[in-house]
Write a protein that binds this DNA or RNA. Structure first.
Lengths: 339, 339
DNA sequence: TAATTTTGCGCAAACGTTTGCTCACTGGTT
DNA sequence: AACCAGTGAGCAAACGTTTGCGCAAAATTA
């Protein structure tokens, strides 16, 4: 017993009606009588009937699967984002095919291929750090399979994406420090090539301007984000003719390195503000006094929603005048309750 | 152009041969002449033909998808494990359908349902903390869909599982502390209901015995793993007539709480050993001096391998004499290089 | 009562691929 | 000349479901 799953055919045979009637009855089609519907549904329930998704997907040419390619699940940003993606997907009756590129461009390419052969209905991508060409995504455009990028956006035109804007979060952060009385605020920024670095800088400058303070470019330093790199720029900062009393760091790791360094120099009283990456920050003894939140869950959710909308949009008229979704999730300064 | 993907039919029509010949040619069937094969393959390549997986899956009743249900991807154990799963899956031409239970038994149940309707070929599960009934997995047994549990194993019989054995890792840990000269070693253990707690305790006892030391049960305390709970049992320990000079903690969080507490009491010189959960431990100022590693990547890999083996095993003779895979991955003490 | 509409259901095609059979050749052996 | 084995290829069924179309019976209208 309980060998092969029940099919619509068996139900039809037992009830001595046609398969089409059974199908329509189960789908509440209007042309089926109430009594027949009831009979069919009752038997279907008894037999634990479940439609064979593969057959349906095959018939309709839809897999109801969305592919997700992201760099690293062990980065909490992504593991949180995937929760948002997952939740949306499940709510809208899609399932998530997951793959990590591990920040390897070649692997990413391969995964994109896999996604294609699996015939996903749509693709969600956060590109790897090492990806420098983007043709492998073009294929999907040709196949009319929507692709939505999130967080790590490739520098090309005509794409859908969801990203966070760090400018206003940074603005808030610097403003917060200024309100606290700081007048000399340093910033350990990332590589200047990153959009994210640029946004941070802009936010910093805007905050200074709106407070009618003059902006000193030498207080913003670039860093490779490693521990040694951080220590190096920290030393530069500390030897600056205007020694900062507060520092905004590129991320929590940099903040950690920097704070550790100041403690090793037995310097006290520098306030740090960082960008939220690590949940573990809650368990630390020394933490930044505030943090710019990027809402990864929300970003994932939004991206998935857009993707599924795109999948289900009415067939566009032969490709002309495509609209591209470019959503920006605003970042926000989070100030923890002081213990 | 590039509208719908190429099908085998179109190739057949162009070449004026039958679909079956095309199919066989592409699959290198022996009954097709070499010249025909070449012609077919050439054209297929030109047309960017790719077999429609959905059709094949439907035909063969196989989805080549394995479902993975685990509690929390933000726990590094799981995000590492999934990498192992993923790698195996991709190597063996399966794809991974991911879902998180967020340690919610109801959600887990729902996800299991989803996996069933998606007709996954197999299921990999690490059960949620709150799961107390296990019938929802029984369905799969009936459907002959293999289920492999990993790390968090339900306390029921006749299941496949991969888990880590913490006993020997704990043994090594305690041994290590003894070699370092400690004679009074405390252990902050988890709830006694957990298998994992039991294994830790056993390892502890074995180490003591093999060093011809007598085991003092009062040095092992149970804890709910919260911060307040940890502080409480730490106080008990510190007031013990034999104050421990080293403590083995249930996990890194507990270690963190405990270490923070001792520092707040300005106690120095207690050595801590923990179990590896947090990569971030590398960034901390105060860390355990050693850690028991559970090899999540390896566990995930192993579990996925077993699952796929099960999926592809020859049809077992009407269910009799099923063998169950119970694989134990040994844990291991990792002693970081002193800085 | 006849003509028309509505209601309820069945027939059969279609989706893309695989595979068991069948069949027509070709070449070689009696 | 008759037979057989082997080779190469086609026919058609099958997988489970949806859906356009058609058709009969029942209900409504004239």
């Amino acid at each position: 017993m309980s060998d092969k799953p029940t099919t619509i055919k068996e139900i039809a045979k037992i009830l001595k009606i046609s398969v089409s009637t059974v199908s329509r009855a189960l789908n509440d089609h209007s042309s089926i009588g109430l009594t027949t519907k009831m009979r069919v549904k009752k038997l279907a329930a008894e037999l634990n009937y479940e439609p064979n998704q593969k057959a349906i997907q095959f018939l309709q040419g839809k897999s109801h699967i969305i592919g997700v390619i992201l760099p690293e699940l062990s980065e909490s940003f992504f593991s949180t984002a995937i929760s948002g993606i997952e939740d949306v997907a499940y709510k809208r009756n899609y399932t998530v095919l997951l793959a990590q590129s591990h920040d390897d461009a070649d692997r990413e390419k391969l995964l994109v291929e896999k996604m294609k052969t699996q015939r996903v209905d749509g693709l969600l991508v956060s590109v790897s750090k090492t990806t420098s060409t983007y043709e492998h995504f073009e294929v999907f455009k040709k196949l009319n399979i929507p692709v939505v990028f999130f967080d790590r956006i490739p520098p090309i035109k005509d794409i859908h994406y969801v990203a966070s804007n760090l400018e206003n979060g940074t603005y808030e952060a610097v403003n917060f420090l200024l309100k606290k009385g700081h007048r000399t605020i340093g910033m350990i920024n990332g590589p200047t090539t990153l959009v994210a670095s640029h946004e941070r800088k802009e936010g910093y400058i805007k905050a200074m301007i709106s407070n009618r303070l003059k902006f000193d470019p030498s207080l913003i330093v670039s860093c490779d984000l490693s521990e040694s790199g951080t220590i190096e720029v920290m030393n530069t900062m500390l030897n600056h003719r205007r020694k900062p009393t507060a520092i905004v760091t590129f991320n929590d790791y940099v903040a950690l390195f920097a704070m550790r360094h100041t403690r090793s120099l037995e310097l006290e009283g520098i306030d740090f503000v960082s960008y939220a990456n690590l949940p573990i920050i809650n368990y630390m003894d020394y933490t930044p006094i505030a943090s710019v939140e990027q809402f990864p869950y929300k970003q994932g959710k939004k991206a998935a929603d857009i993707l599924i909308d795109l999948i289900n949009r009415p067939k566009n008229e032969t490709g002309t005048e495509q609209a591209y979704f470019n959503v920006v999730v605003e970042s926000e300064l989070i100030i923890p309750n002081p213990k």
